[in-house]
């Protein structure tokens, strides 16, 4: 197609036109390119360290989720191991129940409900204040949900305990003093975290021992057998607390099982805390679904 003369004239004259840009234009271009590269080049381009950090973060998160999923199995394992030293959890609630005779049962339960919770300094302080000052109005609004939860959990465990006739406490007629004791024995096991109780106990060790002594004197009046049992339990607890910290005990058990596995002996997976066969079965079951 023939080109229009106007178009031809302009095209010929203008095709080779040059307009020199200002010298700072190149610097501007470089600057923009750098900022754009920084924007486009995400964290993964900043170096392998960041990538490694990201991967490790994912792994840690995965482990946390996995361990959370495993928690029900672990509680079963802990329950069984706890039987050897149940009074460990008795001392604090006993002390509280004795120090606050005016408070109702639900108050005691509320106090107990906080034991398995996270052992922050705040809570320890709270509990100290509560035990010395018997007023309950100031904190009533806060732990209402906890109270109900504690009630539920403690009741459940109480039922479980009734089914197992190992304990003498079940045979004893429940009194006002002993009811919280029962709950105190059971609630930490029902709410499970074992390591937490150890951390809580240590700062109040003296108090709890005194409290347990007071309990002994009270219970002495009612049943001599019971006192003996409790005494021995408390002694056991004292020994466990001072000589065998909970965590190290478990570690040694796990270590022992690992040794067994290494030596080709039978491994008691309940001692370890989880059963890989169960985990595998659970995982494959999920996959099938």
């Amino acid at each position: 197609m023939k080109k229009h003369p106007t178009d031809k004239f302009f095209a010929e004259k203008l095709k080779e036109v040059e307009i020199k840009p200002r010298p700072e234009a190149w610097d501007k271009l470089q600057m923009r390119m750098q900022t754009k590269q920084r924007r486009i080049g995400g964290w993964w381009q900043q170096g392998p360290w960041l990538a490694a950090a990201g991967v490790s973060l994912v792994l840690v998160a995965g482990w946390v989720i996995w361990s959370l999923n495993q928690s029900p199995d672990l509680t079963v394992a802990h329950k069984e191991t706890n039987k050897s030293m149940p009074p460990q959890k008795q001392t604090i609630p006993l002390g509280e129940s004795n120090k606050i005779p005016s408070s109702t049962d639900t108050d005691a339960i509320a106090a107990l409900a906080e034991i398995p919770k996270e052992p922050t300094d705040k809570e320890v302080e709270k509990r100290n204040i509560r035990s010395s000052v018997p007023q309950k109005d100031a904190r009533q609004s806060e732990p209402t949900i906890l109270e109900s939860l504690a009630l539920q959990s403690s009741q459940e465990v109480a039922v479980n305990e009734n089914k197992t006739p190992e304990r003498e406490n079940v045979n004893i007629a429940p009194t006002k003093v002993e009811q919280p004791q029962l709950i105190a024995q059971n609630s930490p096991t029902s709410n499970q975290p074992v390591t937490k109780t150890v951390v809580l106990q240590l700062p109040e060790l003296k108090q709890s021992l005194v409290a347990s002594a007071q309990v002994e004197s009270n219970v002495e009046k009612q049943s001599a057998d019971n006192v003996e049992k409790q005494k021995s339990d408390n002694e056991d607890f004292g020994e466990n607390l001072l000589n065998k910290p909970r965590k190290s005990t478990r570690m040694t058990k796990v270590w022992q099982q690992l040794k067994n596995a290494k030596n080709g002996e039978k491994v008691d997976w309940e001692e370890v805390g989880f059963n890989p066969n169960k985990v595998l079965a659970k995982a494959t079951g999920k996959n099938e679904n």
Binding site: L14, E16, V17, E18, I19, K20, P21, A25, W26, L29
Partner: peptide
Amino acid sequence: LYEKYSARLLA
């Protein structure tokens, strides 16, 4: 590239 073509491309 910039030195060679910038003037023509600016035009």
